[in-house]
Nucleic acid binder design. Structure first.
Lengths: 217, 217
DNA sequence: CGCATCTTTGCGTGGCGCGCAACTTCGGCT
DNA sequence: AGCCGAAGTTGCGCGCCACGCAAAGATGCG
């Protein structure tokens, strides 16, 4: 890989991390594009050569994580049971990615705070969900290959991909509000297990700690 | 309901429909907020009293549809089997809503074109997915009530809601690309059936018309 | 070394989101 | 009926943002 591309990737990462860090520190609308560009040591105009909006910059790290899920799914051996492969692929997003290790700026705490603001800020929610949708398309393709289903004629690969992303989102949301904290891999595995079981209504007598306190109205 | 609220609702609908119609006719970025306001007979400034962006205006009709799903789910009798209730609720979005009947402007063709542009335009995708997320929260609440699960402690209601929305989105996407056309209710029902069955890998020998033409690489 | 290609940058423009402060309309209450 | 507070509308103005364009700079290859 030439110097050119390495530099591009570095600038991209710098911009993205700067966007996340500043947004976490000051709040989304106390950060101007100018600030992000300055923090990354680049002209404001250049920012828009890499990202078409603040939101896209912030979410791009999240998108990278999600794309690793599709990659991992393609890498799983073909003889592995299907849902086991799905589970492994889903867990791939929790491993620190290549650019995560390169930038020591990004401790997990900062990342969690970043995700929290992405979920909280309305204008970032859309961007975040769009990232999920993009990753979902990749996953659907991988699923179609693996299960030999048809990407345009069958619902199946899209359903699996959508369910996988849904599990990710639900687990993430739960992770962010869980107190005391719950490990993310457990949440993800749990969600996928329930999905693969067809989401049967849990029997209220077995293993439930407490029934819903809100009475049915 | 007083005159005030009726007028507000009317203006809101007028703005939203105008936004959709103009966008379908001319393309998203050949429509200025000014145009939409003018078409609705209202000042440009007023537009932003109702919607905070073009995208929100366009998608608001879609959001209304999705919210009807949660409403319908709450209305289904408690003795109805759970997944049957889910199916019925999902199908509720296909029925023309109250404001659909009031505005004869909105034939199904126009609506389909509207959805098509929402899915195609990048800046509308996010808004659309945000609408799904909002509806999903409502559905999750309804599911928690019905199944007596806990909205904050359990993944279950969120998973069901997310799966329902995923089914809706996947079915919609398939509907938009299907040629020859496939009835939407069949797609939705099919998607939900597969989900409730735990998304088993379809056996490639039975009932498949054609295997995936792309070889696994 | 020198040229072709890609990238960065400054500038300018059009549009948008929204706070603010009049002004208008509505609806209840005496 | 008439009045008054509340709610909605409008015009104005500001700061920000996305992006087209063209000049200047960096990079890689022969």
């Amino acid at each position: 890989m030439g110097l050119r591309e390495r530099k591009k990737a570095a600038t991209r990462a710098a911009l993205s991390w700067a966007a996340i860090r500043l947004t976490v520190e000051r709040g989304l609308d106390n950060v101007k594009v100018e600030d992000i560009a300055e923090a990354a040591g680049v002209s404001p105009r250049t920012f828009n050569n890499y990202f078409s909006s603040k939101g896209e910059a912030i979410v791009s790290r999240h998108l990278d994580r999600l794309l690793r899920v599709a990659d991992e799914l393609r890498c799983r051996p073909a003889e592995e049971p299907f849902w086991e492969a799905i589970r492994r692929a889903a867990l791939a997003q929790l491993e620190p990615g290549p650019e995560m290790l390169a930038h020591p700026v990004s401790d997990p705490v900062q990342w969690t705070a970043g995700v929290r603001v992405m979920v909280a800020e309305p204008s970032l929610q859309g961007e975040m969900l769009r990232a999920s949708a993009r990753a979902q398309a990749e996953v659907a393709e991988a699923v179609a290959e693996r299960t030999r289903t048809n990407l345009t004629a069958d619902l199946y690969p899209h359903l699996v991909a959508a369910a996988l992303m849904a599990a990710t989102n639900v687990a993430t949301a739960h992770y962010l509000r869980a107190d005391p904290p719950v490990p993310m891999d457990r949440l993800l595995t749990d969600a996928l297990t329930q999905l693969a079981a067809g989401l049967p209504t849990p029997s209220p007598l077995s293993g439930r700690d407490q029934p819903n306190p809100r009475p049915a109205q």
